[in-house]
Design a protein around this nucleic acid. Sequence first.
RNA 1: GGUCACGUGGCCGAGUGGCUAGGCAGUGGUCUGCAAAACCAUUUACAGCGGUUCGAAUCCGCUCGUGACCUCCA
Length: 495
Amino acid sequence: MINDLKIHNSLTRKKELFKPINPPFVGLYVCGPTVYSDVHMGNVRTFMSFDVVNRYLKHLGYKVRYVRNITDVGHLVNDADDGEDKIGKKAKLENLEPMEIVQRYANGFHQVMDMFNTLPPDIEPSATGHIVEQIEITKKLLENGWAYEKNGSVYFNVEKYNKSHEYGILSGRKIEDLQSNTRALDGQDDKESPLDFALWKKASDEHIMRWPSPWGAGFPGWHLECTVMSTKYLGETFDIHGGGLDLKFPHHECEIAQSVGATGKSPVNYWIHTNMLTVNGQKMSKSLGNSFLPTELVTGNHAMLDQGYSPMSVRFFMLQTHYSSTLDFSNEALKAAQKGYRKLANGLKTVKKLNFAQDEGSKNEQVINEIKQACDNCYRSMNDDFNTAKTIAQLFELLKKINSLHAGQLKYSEIGKEVFTKLVNTYQSFMVDVLGLKEETPAEVHPIIEALLDVYKKAKAEKNYAQVDEIRAVLKSNKLLIKDMKTGVDWAYEE
RNA sequence: GGUCACGUGGCCGAGUGGCUAGGCAGUGGUCUGCAAAACCAUUUACAGCGGUUCGAAUCCGCUCGUGACCUCCA
């Protein structure tokens, strides 16, 4: 099963069998955020998608080194020579040190990632921590003849590179098309061609973020950091590189050119690109002003939101769609997801209470096969390019069996201990370990709820229906409900 | 304008040649002090037109519509 993982490779545009370079080790690099403002839900979607990639690879037994960078310099507001650094601009605006800006939004980013239950990367390098390496690779590219210096800046010569290599190999672009379509931006006089991109840029006098270099005071170009940091921690060629679809061109295309130019090797075996989150059919982005902040979504404090949605509901909502499809944000869809998630979360709670017992049932081959199939399908679905939507469908099938056992509609003896164990283990591991969906009510309150249930049971036995209804009401006001079953009484998260 | 995607039932969304996706909503039933939950059953599909094929939501062509990238973007 472990060898059956297939990944849609953006580079070849095909689904390919995943073969790590050096198993069981896997190198995974994902382009992280530029920390100049709060991350929005679109950003979150990408990192959540790769969180599942990371989790599933680990679940399969791979030793993953997950590297996700923090961009804290070099990302310019535009491509002009006087283009401001995003972080430097914000620092000036708020009268703070650039590193204060970086720290503030990096902290916020980590809080958000934690809220959505994404595992931290194994290495989280920052661009400013790798200035020396970026200068070194720039020197190398100059030595190798792929770059040129002009007025204290260094640019990559795309046209020259394209003569012997394929510049548009990842994004499917032809350099001729790019040339005819490139807009003439102001202030690009230093470049020999508008297609060329900066490796190192000269810092103007008012530019705050600056480092000494062989070409004078300046700062690294945006694309360079990922090349340097992925190479440093994962090697000149590594397994998987991911990022949002909008980074495919030019960012990832430039990364390939830089690596090939510096080492002669193609840097990445499998490229994965995640699709965009949309609002009313349009890409969520800060510039369009249609973005939601995670806190707004959770509290419901936004003009377009009817109510708040819990982090796990949102996580479930996003995983119901394949990462390569656009996902549209709407109240209706989120409400449906909230209910679906609660149902699955209740299953997580229920499954812990199940204890196998030899009861009066006899083996039911049909049910046994249904359970086995659904369990296997969890792996098949994830192996099919991390198809979380299909996996979730399987979990709902397993959930039905779990609930049937709990309510006594299905007998333990009908499925046998082995299949029961498989059912429980598969449900838990795919929910918690692979998809990262956890219960949201703190475990500490569970005993209190159970104590209240004891009172409820007693009142019921005494046919004290006034008190029975009262207890129901109390729990309901706390978003919990009581389940009266033939086999006993239990509680669940309200749906 | 160039390049590339996408268009599935009331809603959200899997599915890439024959086999029930799934969730939400709806309907009927079992259960129940009444309910709820749970389980069982069930209704509504593949943008349009043409082609390939024994057979297409799935492949090909055209039309219409939507979006992304081409400039910063996850």
